[in-house]
Amino acid sequence: MRFDLKTPCKNCPFRTDETAIRFQCLERAEEIEESAYRNGFPCHLSADLEEDEGDAGYVFGGNTQHCAGALLMFARHGDGPVPFTRLSEAKQEAVLNRLDWSAPVFESEADFLDSYGPTDSPTLAGHEAEGVVSKNQHPKEAGEPATNQPGEKEP
């Protein structure tokens, strides 16, 4: 899994603008949110498509990029390390510093799910964080937003 993306792709489901893809129902959005929290979320532009008995989904391959929209959403709402990356704290900080914090992404998992209608989802209860970072701001108030150029070396 790679972390080179700096901004969500045009069709990222975690975007708040009109270009985002939408899931069919709240239940599917809950499944996606929970899976993204626990396992990470592959950007569909670089992920492998896996088909299993008529069901298909995107999975991480060797060069798959992690979804920048999911990283931003979870990091904005969290008060600590991004939950699913399994990276050292220093590497997580480098990834977070590279992200474009002005990207139109949901402020929290609850906002993402609420966009599908009201919910009393138990999905959020297990990992809802206390701290909230304001829109357009890195949790540690890092430098300027970066552009999305995968493969670019870190400063």
Rank of each mutant, 00 (worst) to 15 (best):
P8S: 11
Y116D: 11
F112Y: 15
P118S: 11
E154M: 05
G126C: 04
N11M: 14
E93S: 06
C9S: 14
R15V: 11
E93K: 10
Y58K: 02
P122F: 03
F23Y: 15
P8Y: 06
E130Q: 08
D100P: 11
L99T: 11
A90G: 05
L49V: 13
E31V: 11
A75Q: 13
C43K: 01
G40R: 04
P150N: 14
P8E: 07
E89Y: 09
E109C: 01
L124P: 06
L99V: 06
I32E: 12
D79R: 03
P13K: 07
N97V: 01
P104V: 00
D114L: 15
V132K: 14
A68M: 12
E109A: 08
L26G: 14
P13G: 01
E130Y: 10
E128P: 00
N136Y: 12
P13D: 03
D48Q: 04
H77F: 04
A20R: 15
E154F: 13
F84C: 14
I32H: 02
Y116E: 14
A146L: 12
G54M: 12
C43L: 05
V59W: 00
F112C: 09
N39L: 13
P118C: 03
E33R: 09
T85D: 05
P81C: 03
V59Y: 01
G78P: 02
L72C: 10
A68T: 02
G117E: 12
K135F: 11
F106T: 11
P42A: 03
E93N: 05
A146V: 09
D55E: 08
A56E: 15
T64A: 07
E34N: 10
I32K: 03
S102C: 12
